[in-house]
Simulated assay, not measured.
Amino acid sequence: MSAPERTAGAGGLLAALGLFSVLPVPQRARVPGPGVLRWLPVVGLVLGALACVPALVVWRGADEGSPLLAAALVVTALALLTRGLHLDATADLADGLGSGRPAEQALAIMRRPEVGAFAVAAIGCTLLVQVAALAAVLGDAGPVEGVLAVVLATVTGRTAVLHAAARPAAPGSSLGVLVAGSGSGLLRWSVTGVLLLAAVGVRLAVGGSAAQGLWSAAAVVVALVLAALLARHAARRLGGVNGDVFGALVEAATTATLVVLATGVSWT
């Protein structure tokens, strides 16, 4: 079976899970192929739901248990489920952009195994803000609403990658086989439209107010806009996008989604 055929159906989802998570899939499925990135939002949905399992042991909604500990467990679970892949990318991109060097030198810095001050700050701030924002959300939510908030953030983070896939690859990047077949404008905006409708519709379906539904949609919009700005800046500085940019976009958009949702808690 050819790579396009493998990534067109369920095989594409298995390939995406094998490449971007620690979930067990057949070894033959762990082969990147055209269109595999289109499955990232589904990967986000699966990982977001799984990451909530340990949190539900210590938190059963609102003040029943510890929202802070639950938030920390969710963020930890996401890091474990992805092998820290996106956090590592965030660190690399922070060091590369923070260096202020020309594109070639910045890319060389990003390929080094050493971790610089910008990387430490980026990872520390990302984890801190994610835990704090999610704790605020969980402190005012029931189990179902809490899980939905996490899933919304993880799916939005990966939808941001679909939009960035339309940009040229940075010199030396091996993204070609992954990006091929994933940068369709129809695909990107269809996924975004479905995500926005789900953000509002599902929130209303579980008993949320119209204001809460709008805050959910706003979280998606703000996160995708901020991710687009980051992708644009990175592409200008590096001459295109690469895997580190994609990983950093996942973390940035996930974080932004949680921050907006937490802001909505105080206003609704």
Rank of each mutant, 00 (worst) to 15 (best):
L134C: 12
A210I: 11
L152K: 10
L226I: 11
A218F: 14
V147W: 04
V250C: 05
L175G: 15
R237E: 12
V155C: 01
A160L: 05
V151Y: 11
A136E: 14
A223K: 07
V245R: 01
L214G: 09
T159V: 15
E251H: 01
A235N: 03
R203N: 03
L162P: 07
A153G: 03
G139D: 10
G142E: 05
V222M: 09
V131K: 02
A165K: 06
G193Y: 05
D140I: 09
G183C: 12
G193A: 04
A165Y: 10
S182L: 09
A217G: 15
A153W: 09
S190C: 01
A135R: 08
R167P: 03
P171D: 10
G239K: 10
V200F: 15
V151D: 03
G201A: 15
A234V: 00
A141P: 07
A205S: 14
V241F: 02
A149L: 09
R203D: 03
L204E: 01
A219L: 11
G240N: 04
A198R: 02
S209P: 12
L238T: 00
A199L: 10
W215K: 13
A234K: 00
L214N: 03
R236I: 00
R158Y: 09
G240V: 03
T255M: 05
V144H: 00
L224Y: 13
A253D: 11
